[in-house]
Simulated scan of single mutants.
Amino acid sequence: MNYGIWADIFMEHEYVGGRCEDFTFRPDPPTAETMKREGIMMRETAGGFRLIADESAFSHEISLVFWAYPVHRNLWNVTEFGEIPADSIPFAKIKDESLQWETSSKGDIPEAMQLPKPMFGMEIANSQGKSGASITLSLKTKKMKWYYYISGLPDNDTAEIVKIKGDKEASPFDTTKGNLGESVFVSKQEIPLRYGAPPLFQLREKKTSKAIIKCLPNMDARSVSTVILDGRREIVAESFVNT
């Protein structure tokens, strides 16, 4: 038998800054039967999976369906798929070298694939005679305003958050007082959540270079919350800091 690459699927996520290895992929029951019949084997790779098939599988069109499950639940909080109806799930349609995101009804997920809950699905198809499709699925991170609740500041009006390293665009913060007297710094612009090192903000005395806090903490996926802004619910990232 002569084997070749039927498809290469790679995952990238803005949250981790590139190749993402935090998903597992499972074929649904009809796909598993098709793979067995056609001699298609699945191999996990760094940040995705590879489908290897006997050359006979390239001579006719085949369609396979897989479901993606996040290894870490943090990805549920940070991934942005756009406006998805409550009764639907994101679904990637892959044909040869093309990729298109659609939605699929949650009721269409086979019962055997519903637990644990998949994050999205994908259908991979090939044209007759085509082989070696390579597709990268790039997921985006939710953009949200950052809230720092900082207690212990002697004078709220003398401090400001200054970006010293990280994103190219500056992200100034508005300052207010919280219900318990803490200082609340709210970013004027939305900032994406990222895994690992923070964009490096400092809390300084205004009009000086004196740092009150040399490095404010990074927001992570567990800090996502909902507040009422301008009369509507909005997702924010919150961090509580004691000076």
Results as ranks from 00 to 15, higher is better:
Ile62Thr: 09
Ser63Pro: 01
Leu64Phe: 05
Val65Leu: 08
Val65Ala: 05
Trp67Asn: 06
Ala68Gln: 06
Val71Asp: 02
His72Trp: 12
His72Thr: 14
His72Leu: 13
Arg73Lys: 06
Leu75Arg: 01
Leu75Cys: 02
Trp76Gln: 09
Asn77Ala: 15
Val78Lys: 02
Val78Asp: 03
Glu80Gln: 11
Gly82Met: 00
Glu83Leu: 08
Glu83Gln: 09
Glu83Trp: 02
Glu83His: 11
Ala86Asn: 07
Ala86Phe: 09
Ala86Gln: 08
Ala86Cys: 11
Ala86Tyr: 10
Asp87Val: 04
Ser88Ile: 01
Ile89Pro: 03
Ile89Val: 10
Pro90Gly: 01
Pro90Ile: 09
Pro90Trp: 00
Phe91Met: 11
Ala92Glu: 06
Lys93Ile: 09
Ile94Ala: 07
Lys95Gly: 11
Asp96Ile: 08
Glu97Tyr: 13
Ser98Cys: 07
Leu99Glu: 06
Leu99Trp: 01
Trp101His: 00
Glu102Asp: 14
Glu102Gln: 10
Ser104Ala: 15
Ser105Val: 02
Ser105Met: 08
Ser105Glu: 10
Ser105Pro: 08
Ser105Tyr: 02
Lys106Asp: 13
Gly107Glu: 15
Gly107Asp: 15
Asp108Ser: 14
Pro110Thr: 02
Pro110His: 08
Pro110Val: 07
Pro110Ala: 05
Glu111Gly: 08
Ala112Val: 05
Met113Tyr: 03
Gln114Pro: 00
Leu115Gly: 03
Pro116Trp: 11
Lys117Cys: 05
Lys117Met: 04
Pro118Phe: 00
Met119Cys: 09
Met119Phe: 03
Met119Ser: 10
Met119Tyr: 04
Phe120Arg: 07
Met122Glu: 04
Met122Gln: 04
Met122Pro: 10
Glu123Lys: 14
Ile124Val: 04
Ile124Glu: 00
Ile124Met: 00
Ala125Gly: 01
Ser127Met: 01
Lys130His: 15
Gly132Val: 11
Gly132His: 11
Gly132Ser: 14
Ala133Cys: 02
Ile135Cys: 00
Thr136Arg: 12
Thr136Gly: 06
Leu137Asn: 09
Leu137Ala: 04
Leu139Ile: 03
Leu139Asn: 03
Lys140Trp: 01
Lys140His: 04
Thr141Leu: 08
Lys142Trp: 05
Lys143Asn: 14
Lys143Gly: 13
Met144Asp: 00
Met144Trp: 02
Lys145Asp: 00
Trp146Leu: 09
Tyr147Thr: 00
Tyr147Ala: 01
Tyr148Ala: 08
Tyr149Pro: 02
Ile150Met: 03
Gly152Val: 11
Leu153Ser: 07
Asp155Ser: 14
Asp155Gln: 13
Asp155Phe: 11
Asp155Glu: 12
Asn156Ser: 12
Asn156Met: 13
Asp157Lys: 15
Asp157Thr: 15
Thr158Asp: 15
Thr158Cys: 10
Ile161Trp: 04
Ile161Arg: 03
Lys165Glu: 13
Gly166Leu: 03
Asp167Ala: 15
Glu169His: 09
Ala170Lys: 15
Ala170Leu: 14
Pro172His: 11
Phe173Thr: 07
Phe173Arg: 06
Asp174Glu: 12
Thr175Trp: 02
Thr176Cys: 12
Thr176Val: 15
Thr176Tyr: 14
Thr176Glu: 15
Lys177Met: 12
Lys177Pro: 01
Lys177Glu: 05
Leu180Gly: 05
Leu180Trp: 06
Glu182Gln: 11
